[in-house]
């Protein structure tokens, strides 16, 4: 088992390297650089920046160097724990990134748990009661959730939350708690806010997982081992949970690999609408202004988050399924 985990962790290194290259290329793709953004901003303010000053700025930010030099300077810094400097915020990137990435990870994790908690029982119910009213109702509910645009649902829920429950609009905390230290009251306040993005992101993801679970379980329900277990005299509910669900849950768990990326990219829109202090809005802003190091750090860390999620699901699979563990 330990060997398996070590092997998977080592396997992540080339993936991370590839992600860093891709992230860097994506950031460099649009024409211009951060200095062009500065020039544009200055022009809006009625100011002008002459060529000499631009060259000085370019040199200061290091954006005039050849791309390879820039990439290795960036990645070399990261290996030493230095994520570079945000041009726009005039702060080291690491100061900006950690808290927001923490919020993003937490929100993605809660949402994933929420999706699993909803999709698993509904999927099982739908499979066992195939073509029943409940099956159709659950499917309908799931697809409506998938088809409703996230931003719309976010606005509606925000309205409900404000008008009916009197919570503050947007953000993850009420204003009085934003700067406060963690306490039970702050956690409760957090819970009052987090359900909106979790629900918005969750409803988009449950439909697919309900269908995955339903289809997996339908394949397993007619397997001979289920009949053999029934012939032993097992009660039906225990039988279904202990045997076919145990086997059918494998593909369900490995969906982490594609659920996490959709959650994180969905988070970008939802967080912008709800004004959440997560990575999404800041990443969007950094990309728009070509704040290279900040955007790069976010992209890299989001990639790492997905890899870690996949790793965790692989480990979970190995624990659950002896066929994976032993071969």
């Amino acid at each position: 088992m330990l060997g398996f985990i070590i092997k998977r962790v080592l396997g992540m290194i080339p993936s991370l390297a590839a992600i860093s290259v891709l992230a860097f290329i994506v950031i460099q793709l649009p024409p211009g650089d951060f200095v062009t953004t500065l020039v544009a901003q200055a022009a809006e303010a009625g100011d002008t920046i002459d060529d000499a000053k631009m060259a000085v700025l370019r040199q200061r930010y290091g954006v005039g160097d050849p791309i390879l030099v820039q990439y290795f300077r960036w990645i070399g810094g990261i290996l030493q724990g230095d994520f570079g400097y945000s041009f726009e915020w005039n702060q080291p990137v690491s100061q900006l990134v950690w808290e927001r990435m923490g919020m993003t990870s937490l929100m993605s994790f809660i949402t994933l748990m929420f999706i699993w908690a909803i999709a698993l029982p509904i999927g099982i119910y739908s499979a066992v009661n195939k073509y029943s009213f409940g099956d159709y109702a659950a499917t309908l509910f799931g697809f409506i959730g998938m088809a409703t645009p996230n931003f719309l649902l976010a606005i509606v829920l925000m309205y409900i939350s404000t008008i009916w429950f009197g919570n503050s609009v947007g953000g993850l905390f009420s204003p009085e708690y934003v700067k406060a230290d963690w306490s039970l009251a702050k956690i409760w306040d957090f819970a009052k806010h987090i359900w909106i993005p979790v629900l918005v992101l969750g409803t988009a993801g449950t439909a697919a997982l309900i269908r995955v679970m339903r289809a997996n379980l339908l394949d397993e329900l007619n397997k001979p081992y289920v009949e053999a277990a029934r012939a032993k005299g097992l009660p039906e509910v225990k039988l279904i949970l202990a045997y076919p669900v145990r086997v059918a849950i494998n593909p369900f768990i490995s969906t982490v690999g594609w659920v996490l990326p959709t959650l994180i990219s969905g988070e970008l829109i939802v967080s912008t609408v709800l004004n959440l202090p997560t990575a999404g809005p800041l990443l969007l802003q950094a990309l728009k202004s070509q704040d290279m190091f900040l955007a790069g750090a976010f992209l890299l860390m989001i990639g790492a988050l997905v890899l870690i999620g996949t790793l965790l699901s692989d480990i979970l699979l190995a624990i659950i399924d002896p066929r994976i563990r032993l071969s």
Binding site: Y225, R230, G233, R246, D321, P322
Partner: peptide, 20 residues
């Protein structure tokens, strides 16, 4: 079932659970 009347099946390959 299983107590007074027990049954064995054709497919020993698939009649046992693979994960238990």
């Amino acid at each position: 079932r299983g107590n007074e009347i027990a049954m064995i099946f054709q497919e020993p390959m698939t009649s046992l659970s693979p994960v238990h």
